[in-house]
């Protein structure tokens, strides 16, 4: 009986993995269906203000155990063509080969390599960010926001994280000026326990 249960569980996991390729055997799936997650970016405009935007389409999963944070993992996949800065002409430019070149590099990806706990509930999420065909190690400064039961029978956990990347590190050739060499990424992630 137990054997059969395992088989069933394995089968459903495999089926699940086929249906949703971003889902591994992770504990949480990022709630993009309910849009309780967002991947935002901001970059200085001429050094005078912040220009913000986001990626509308992404998915991912993470495993998280507050008792054993270092065993946690996260993987996020981003559809780069879903970049949205609330300006069609600019978005077209961002998708073009001056920036994201989404025809060639349709996806960006972050896969954690190690997660360490820091003072005050902060987390340092190290991992590889693949963007514009370049894979580089980055560290996301993250924090837990909260976790617990939702009112509809599920269980959720949420985090926020920020990191800063240099455009040139990712071979993005457009020069936006001396104040705009780096873009800040902000992730707000809510996961639904599987």
């Amino acid at each position: 009986m137990k054997n059969m249960m395992t088989k069933l569980a394995t089968a459903s996991l495999i089926t699940g993995a086929m249906l949703m390729p971003t889902v591994n055997a992770a504990d949480y799936v990022i709630d993009n269906k309910g849009a309780h997650a967002s991947i935002n970016f901001k970059i200085k405009h001429l050094g005078y203000s912040w220009l913000t935007g986001r990626f509308d389409k992404f998915g991912g999963n993470f495993s998280y155990d507050p008792a054993n944070v270092s065993a946690s993992k996260i993987e996020v996949n981003i559809d780069t063509s879903s970049v949205n800065s609330n300006h069609a002409e600019r978005d077209k430019h961002l998708r073009g080969d001056d920036f994201l070149d989404v025809n060639t590099f349709a996806n960006a990806k972050f896969v954690s390599t190690s997660i360490t706990e820091k003072a005050g509930g902060k987390l340092a999420v190290s991992g590889v960010l693949t963007l514009h065909g370049v894979s580089k190690n980055i560290v996301i400064d993250a924090e837990t926001i909260g976790e617990g039961k939702d009112p509809w029978g599920g269980y959720r956990a949420g985090f926020s994280g920020t990191t800063s990347i240099a455009l040139t590190d990712y071979a993005i050739k457009m020069n936006l000026g001396p104040a705009s060499t780096h873009v800040q990424l902000e992730l707000h992630i809510e996961g639904k326990k599987q």
């Binding site: 609330n86 300006h87 069609a88 978005d91």
Partner: peptide
């Protein structure tokens, strides 16, 4: 259609 795609 390029420039007006966002209602502008």
């Amino acid at each position: 259609l390029i420039s007006t795609a966002d209602d502008r």
